[in-house]
Simulated scan of single mutants.
Amino acid sequence: MNTSTFLEILKVAEKLKCNTRHSWTSSGRHESVAEHSWRVALMALLMRDEFPELDMDKVIRMCLIHDLGESFTGDIPSFEKKEEDTKKEDEAFFEWLDTFPSPYREEFTELLTEMNDLKTGEAKLYKALDNLEAVVQHNEADISTWIPLEYELQFTYGADKVQFSPYLKDLKKELDNRNKQKIAEANNA
């Protein structure tokens, strides 16, 4: 890849550092999309031993690129995102990928297609981690940043995505326990 193309791709991707999510960090500021994507990838890296049958390098690549479409659309919280928002994001991402040189154009297109289809173990794991990271982040944020619907969403978000894995179901149970404790502490304060 020539250096000009390389720097143009990074320029677009840099927007993920600027685009914030609905989530807050433990220090009290909005989380960036880039921070979310980085930690989803870290979660995959830390789970290699739990999923030896999966191509974890592919899962990590999925995690790193999964929100690149938000460079164009910004982040829309899952509880507000509509099908047309997802379609617009994917269209912008695929259009951008058409400007990539080979083999990156083909690789990223194949990854995004596989991620959207959610049929492979790698795609299912990426999607579960994407959802679980949001639950983890909300739990780490001060409860004063939660909006009313998040008291239930913390328990339901991602629950359907972990069903294929005993390990992920256990992780979700642990997160649920921590959320219950956080809510109880807030109610007793």
Rank of each mutant, 00 (worst) to 15 (best):
D67T: 05
Y126P: 06
I60V: 15
K119R: 14
E95M: 04
P77R: 05
T120V: 07
F108V: 15
N116Q: 14
F100M: 06
E110A: 15
V59K: 10
K124S: 08
F93H: 15
S71H: 03
L118P: 01
N131W: 03
D85K: 10
L64I: 07
K127R: 10
D75A: 15
E70K: 15
L111V: 03
W96F: 14
D75C: 14
G74H: 04
K124A: 10
V135Y: 07
A134W: 00
E95S: 13
F93V: 01
G74T: 02
F94D: 12
L68H: 06
L129H: 08
D90W: 10
T99Q: 14
N139T: 09
F72C: 11
N131D: 12
G69H: 04
E106L: 02
I65Q: 10
N131Q: 02
S102R: 14
L111I: 14
L68E: 00
P77W: 01
C63K: 02
G121A: 11
T73M: 06
L68R: 04
C63D: 07
L111A: 03
E106N: 02
Y104M: 10
K119N: 11
S78M: 02
E91V: 02
D142F: 00
E80I: 01
K87D: 11
N139C: 13
K124N: 07
T73I: 08
E133T: 01
R105H: 09
L125M: 07
K119C: 06
L125C: 08
D75Q: 12
E122H: 04
K127L: 01
L68P: 01
K81Y: 03
V59F: 08
G69L: 02
E91M: 09
E84S: 14
E122R: 03
L112P: 06
E95V: 00
E140W: 02
T73K: 06
L129D: 09
M115H: 15
F79E: 15
A123I: 06
E70F: 08
L129C: 12
I60N: 00
D130A: 06
